[in-house]
């Protein structure tokens, strides 16, 4: 995990440097944006394939899937609630989607 983390950071950093140096004009940036969308959907599609190919995931989902769905949904709702509360307390956030400092 450590090496993976370093690789992710280095790739982000490389992209950051190129973006920061204004090497990319708006026309090229729009094309990159389209490529970014295509990559994203392909990645999600492949992630789906991994789940679909794993027979144990599908079969166990049919037997204990309802428990997994209940725990996941409750966890997500509680997490969103706690983080929302903390963000209002700590960031004094006024807007809905902007991070007010």
């Amino acid at each position: 995990m450590g090496i993976r983390l370093i690789i992710y950071f280095l790739i982000l950093f490389l992209g950051f440097i190129i973006g920061h140096k204004d090497k990319i004009n708006d026309g090229l940036y729009r094309k990159i944006n389209i490529l970014q969308n295509v990559c994203l959907y392909v990645l999600l599609f492949i992630m789906g394939i991994r789940i679909g190919l794993d027979d144990s995931v599908i079969s166990s989902f049919l037997s204990i899937g309802y428990m997994a769905v209940v725990i996941t949904l409750i966890t997500l709702i509680v997490t969103i609630g706690i983080v929302r509360l903390l963000s209002k307390l700590i960031l004094n956030r006024k807007g809905e989607d902007k991070i007010e400092l």
Partner: peptide, 15 residues
């Protein structure tokens, strides 16, 4: 795919 996307994310941040 993830590396390509993270590169683009870095670029967005850099802009």
């Amino acid at each position: 795919g993830l590396c390509v996307l993270l590169f683009f994310v870095g670029m967005d941040l850099g802009r």
